[in-house]
């Protein structure tokens, strides 16, 4: 507020330089909040536009600033900065409203102080983007979506993760690289032709693996069902453990969980495995998988420590020397030689 008052008397060639308390746009009084976050049609607002107080406009109008007005926002405490334009000058004095993603980029909590500086930013020619989730790949026409989404942006800053809303879904996209590259790593995207390149989305590898797993799972076990292998395993179990148990208190005995038959150890326990009567020339490989002994999954468990423990004495020892001597002798009570010594 002090800075705001002082700025009224500054000369026109100086920069706009002010500190404000920041709040997310959703905390704005009125209905605009959502739109500032993700862009709304009727207002045509953009994603990296902030809402400044009217005094800022008053001050800016007295300075030599280039249009469109672009600002650098800095969180001095966290040494983080990003860039953006201004949407309206309707905020309460001393406050600035940010889209939520900008606040998280700057590592700001609502009510923190943010440093706002008016700045010039060169027109961008190239950006490289990395979607932060693989569901970005589900969009059929990336070009159209990005064109309409980036229309709402005025600047792109390297390493920012911005959000766009499409089809009711929020997509987070990171800016990997910008050209031309000034030291700040920021370009203006207003009225420019932009070449856009994409990095593989975060989690793409895992996504592929999951797809592969799904594929493997989908082709798995056609024969296993056809020859009713699991039923045969159960049948073998039935023949080894015939009959049921009953309890004296009349409660039901727990039945064996049928899902347990999926391991080979169980098969080995069967005295007489069921025959697998298939015609000659039929090869079946769907037996339960048993990893080789050397692998990690099969590390033998440590032998439980039986009859291990430490002796303790109720009586506190008089001195350290004696106490130590006592402990040894009590620990090895069965060793007569030691006791004598």
């Amino acid at each position: 507020m002090m800075s705001h008052l002082r700025s009224a008397f500054e000369d026109p060639n100086q920069k706009f330089d002010a500190h404000y308390r920041c709040y997310p746009a959703s905390m704005m009084p009125g209905e605009k909040g959502v739109n500032v976050n993700y862009g709304g049609k009727e207002m045509h607002v953009a994603n990296c536009l902030v809402i400044l107080p009217p005094s800022a406009l008053e001050k800016l109008s007295r300075l030599n600033v280039s249009y469109p007005m672009l600002f650098e926002f800095e969180n001095a405490a966290a040494e983080k900065r990003t860039h953006g334009g201004v949407l309206e000058f309707i905020a309460e004095e001393g406050r600035v409203y940010f889209p939520y993603w900008m606040m998280s980029t700057l590592d700001l909590e609502p009510g923190d102080i943010v440093h706002v500086i008016n700045t010039d930013i060169s027109q961008g020619s190239f950006v490289k983007l990395q979607p932060q989730s693989v569901n970005f790949l589900d969009i059929s026409d990336h070009r159209a979506v990005l064109e309409s989404a980036l229309r709402n942006f005025s600047t792109l800053t390297r390493n920012d993760i911005f959000e766009i809303l499409y089809n009711g879904e929020i997509f987070r996209i990171k800016v990997i690289d910008v050209q031309p590259d000034d030291s700040r790593g920021v370009v203006s995207v207003i009225e420019t032709d932009l070449v856009v390149d994409f990095e593989t989305p975060v989690g793409y590898e895992e996504h592929l693996q999951e797809k592969e797993k799904e594929r493997v799972a989908s082709i798995k076990g056609t024969m296993v069902n056809r020859i009713k292998y699991k039923d045969l395993v159960k049948q073998g179990q039935a023949s080894t453990m015939m009959g049921t148990g009953s309890k004296l208190n009349g409660k039901q005995v727990k039945e064996q969980d049928p899902s347990e038959i999926d391991n080979l150890n169980n098969l080995e326990e069967q005295e007489c495995p069921a025959p697998l009567n298939l015609p000659i020339g039929t090869y079946f490989f769907g037996y339960p998988y048993k990893p080789p002994a050397g692998s990690e999954e099969d590390v033998p468990e440590k032998q439980p420590h039986t009859f291990h423990g430490a002796g303790t004495s109720l009586r506190a020892s008089r001195n350290v020397e004696k106490g130590r001597g006592k402990k040894t002798s009590s620990g090895l009570k069965n060793d007569p030689i030691n006791v004598d010594a």
Partner: peptide, 21 residues
């Protein structure tokens, strides 16, 4: 399933080399 082109080692000394079938 590791997507490295490796396959499961199903046949070894602890399981079987040729199945009964």
């Amino acid at each position: 399933g590791s997507a490295t082109g490796k396959v499961l080692c199903k046949r070894h000394a602890d399981s079987y080399f040729l199945s009964s079938l």
